[in-house]
Design a protein around this nucleic acid. Structure first.
Length: 314
DNA sequence: ATCCCGAGGT
DNA sequence: ACCTCGGGAT
């Protein structure tokens, strides 16, 4: 690599040098516009509604969030309405709709307050500003900027990584994925492009690919389609959920959403059948769970009067 | 068992 | 770089 080609974009090139970018872009956009899953959040450009859908979709299958998204929008129609809600209401909603990861409910509520207080209730349009919102990282910032304002950079999620890794043999490396995604995206078309490339990963270039069935528009360029090697980048494996700490955290939050407040032992007996106050899974164990939940801002623990009372925070 | 349009804290 | 965070669908 010489200095002659100078610019960072050339130095970062991670796509095949002879790739016909215009043809690749046109093929994908045409494929997406011809047919795609009609998710309701794809029919709005309201940044608040987009934001809600993106937070819900983190680590959760899209089919499972459709009704939750519709209920959420009905209950808190605007970012101002959400900011006015109590955190405990939002957390209970989250659990009632089986969305998991209650922290995301807290983040969303916090972010709504930021939008109201820092931006007068009007979402900023720049990814850098959006990323300052609680719970909004690089992916969500660019997704909201793209789908609400057509003003995002290329998103990089597990779909984009898998698709570019297979199709264009992009190395399994964060910087390479970022560069490849950025090179691929046509200027000023982040809305349709980011939707389209994630749709490709979600429908055609799945873990077990459906190239022909889904009519993948990239077959003629695809390295994996040519070689038959559909290896995908490693995704960190999840610890098993059954019996995990997460499972009991979830039960605690669910119960506290149903009962205004509970004392320690009652709560313990209700979240696990083998709860024994002085046993292995007893008060000490439960206090550990509650301590984490309190640090996460999800529950409040009151130790006054010689008894321990627990409730949802906010 | 494995997967899912990530992010924050350490 | 590593860990943690829910739960339904398949």
């Amino acid at each position: 690599m010489t200095d002659a080609d100078g610019g960072a974009s050339a130095a970062d090139a991670s796509l095949p040098p002879d790739l016909d970018l215009d043809a690749v872009r046109e093929a994908l956009i045409e494929w997406y516009e011809a047919d795609h899953r009609p998710f309701p959040w794809r029919q709005t450009d309201d940044p608040y509604e987009i934001h809600v859908s993106e937070v819900m979709s983190q680590q959760t299958q899209l089919d499972r969030i459709i009704s939750a998204w519709e209920d959420f929008r009905e209950r808190w129609p605007t970012v101002d309405a959400l900011a006015d809600a109590d955190r405990s209401e939002v957390v209970s909603f989250w659990t009632d709709h089986s969305l998991g990861y209650n922290n995301r409910a807290k983040y969303l509520h916090e972010a709504a307050n930021q939008v109201v207080e820092e931006y007068g209730g009007e979402y900023p349009e720049e990814p850098d500003e959006l990323e300052e919102l609680m719970g909004v990282g690089p992916y969500t910032a660019n997704a909201v900027a793209s789908f609400a304002f057509n003003n995002g950079n290329a998103v990089v999620d597990t779909n984009v990584e898998r698709v570019t890794y297979r199709a264009f043999d992009v190395p399994d490396d964060d910087a390479a994925f970022e560069a490849a995604a950025s090179e691929l995206m046509p200027e000023g078309e982040s809305r349709v492009w980011n939707n389209a490339i994630m749709e490709l990963g979600g429908v055609a270039c799945t873990k077990s690919p459906n190239c022909d069935e889904a009519g993948c528009p990239w077959r003629r360029w695809c390295h994996a389609y040519e070689t038959g090697d559909f290896t995908a980048p490693d995704v960190p494996e999840q610890p098993s959920f059954e019996g995990s700490r997460r499972q009991f955290r979830g039960r605690v939050v669910r119960l506290l959403g149903e009962h205004d407040e509970m004392d320690l032992d009652t709560l313990g007996h209700r979240i696990r059948i083998d709860y024994a106050p002085d046993g292995e899974h007893g008060r000490e164990w439960l206090r550990g769970i509650l301590s984490d939940l309190r640090n996460d801002g999800l529950v409040a623990v009151d130790e006054s009067g010689g008894e321990t009372t627990v409730r949802l925070q906010g």
